[in-house]
Lab assay of single mutants.
Amino acid sequence: MSIQHFRVALIPFFAAFCLPVFAHPETLVKVKDAEDQLGARVGYIELDLNSGKILESFRPEERFPMMSTFKVLLCGAVLSRVDAGQEQLGRRIHYSQNDLVKYSPVTEKHLTDGMTVRELCSAAITMSDNTAANLLLTTIGGPKELTAFLHNMGDHVTRLDRWEPELNEAIPNDERDTTMPAAMATTLRKLLTGELLTLASRQQLIDWMEADKVAGPLLRSALPAGWFIADKSGASERGSRGIIAALGPDGKPSRIVVIYTTGSQATMDERNRQIAEIGASLIKHW
């Protein structure tokens, strides 16, 4: 058993032996400061991975655009179909130039040979490839079927209504393609630790998130040596930015963190910096 498999397999085991986890309101002070700095709403939640207890939250039940963070949920739905014998990670999917949409750094290189379902999930999560996400959405029946999958998990909040890139429109008060921090954190925890997916599929999902290559300026920039993080970021119109993550010290995840912001006029660099500073406060007061 690899170190990674050891880590995921023991998450339920550690729940019975973990020390009490204490919240630190200092992080919420930073979240509120980020709102002031960005001139935008910020949603935040910090969840204990083992118990599911909410440690801190700010606007946990307000809607925010999901942006590309939905791609983790999408690959969770794909893995659920794999577990049920309805899909194979090794199945190759062929597509054409007409299928390519904006920001497809991986799929645009494989027009001649296509990509496997496994490769598409990797591209969608680690590189946020939009065509990969659309191709995967097609395999499960489209955005409405992803919403149905989430409903069956008990998440009646999170919804996907459109495809890439239209889902990134982020119109104020538009509930399409949105979630709430509390709903996203709970759903992510179920995917990573619950019985919905097999152990192998849970491991695969967290491996893809751990290999994320496009979230460096966010929480990863504040991470001390030896800490673990598996994450997925997102960005969209109207100053929207977000990240969902499982992270913790000693090389294993122990908390879920979800951060969303929307409605800012700030630059992408400034949005990144504010999220990184929230992460730094979280780690300092861990």
Rank of each mutant, 00 (worst) to 15 (best):
S2G: 09
I3Y: 14
R7A: 13
L10W: 09
P12G: 13
A15S: 15
C18A: 15
L19S: 13
L19V: 15
L19I: 15
P20L: 02
P20H: 07
V21L: 08
V21S: 14
H24S: 11
P25H: 09
K30E: 02
A40E: 11
A40H: 03
R41K: 15
R41P: 08
G43T: 00
Y44D: 00
Y44F: 09
Y44I: 03
L49F: 10
N50V: 14
S51C: 04
G52E: 05
G52A: 05
K53C: 10
K53W: 07
K53Q: 14
E56A: 10
E56G: 08
S57M: 10
S57H: 09
S57A: 14
S57E: 12
F58C: 08
R59S: 12
R59G: 01
P60T: 07
P60A: 15
P60N: 06
E62G: 03
R63H: 06
P65Q: 05
S68N: 00
L73C: 06
L73S: 06
L73R: 00
C75L: 01
G76V: 01
V78C: 03
R81S: 07
R81L: 08
D83V: 01
A84C: 11
A84R: 14
G85T: 05
G85A: 09
Q88D: 15
L89T: 04
L89Y: 06
G90E: 15
G90I: 09
R91A: 04
R92D: 04
S96F: 11
S96T: 14
S96H: 11
Q97I: 13
Q97W: 12
Q97H: 12
N98G: 12
N98V: 13
P105Q: 04
K109R: 12
L111P: 07
G114C: 09
R118S: 15
E119V: 01
L120V: 02
A123V: 04
I125M: 11
T126Q: 09
M127K: 07
A132S: 07
A133D: 01
L137G: 01
L137H: 01
L137V: 05
T139A: 13
T139Q: 14
I140F: 07
P143C: 02
K144E: 15
E145G: 15
T147I: 05
L150M: 09
L150V: 10
G154R: 03
D161L: 01
P165L: 07
E166T: 09
L167T: 08
L167V: 12
N168V: 05
E169G: 08
A170S: 13
A170E: 15
N173K: 10
N173R: 09
D174V: 03
D174C: 06
E175A: 11
D177N: 03
T178V: 02
T179K: 00
M180N: 15
A182E: 12
M184V: 05
T186K: 15
T186V: 14
R189N: 09
T193A: 13
G194R: 07
G194S: 13
G194C: 10
L196R: 15
L197I: 07
L197G: 01
A200Y: 10
A200S: 14
A200G: 14
S201V: 02
R202M: 06
Q204S: 08
I206A: 09
D207N: 12
E210A: 10
K213T: 08
A215V: 02
A215D: 02
P217G: 09
L218I: 03
L218C: 03
L218E: 02
S221C: 09
S221R: 11
A222H: 11
A222T: 12
A222F: 06
A222Q: 14
L223G: 01
L223D: 00
L223M: 11
P224E: 02
A225R: 13
G226N: 09
A230V: 02
G234R: 00
G234E: 00
E237Q: 09
G239E: 03
G242N: 02
G242C: 06
G242L: 00
I243E: 02
I243V: 10
A246Q: 02
A246C: 11
L247M: 13
L247Q: 00
P249R: 05
P253K: 03
P253D: 03
S254A: 13
S254C: 09
I259L: 07
T262S: 14
G263A: 12
G263D: 13
S264V: 04
Q265S: 14
Q265L: 11
Q265T: 14
A266L: 09
A266D: 05
T267Q: 09
T267M: 07
T267C: 11
E270K: 09
N272I: 02
R273K: 04
A276N: 08
A276E: 08
E277D: 08
E277L: 11
S281D: 05
S281V: 15
I283N: 00
I283M: 09
I283R: 02
H285Y: 10
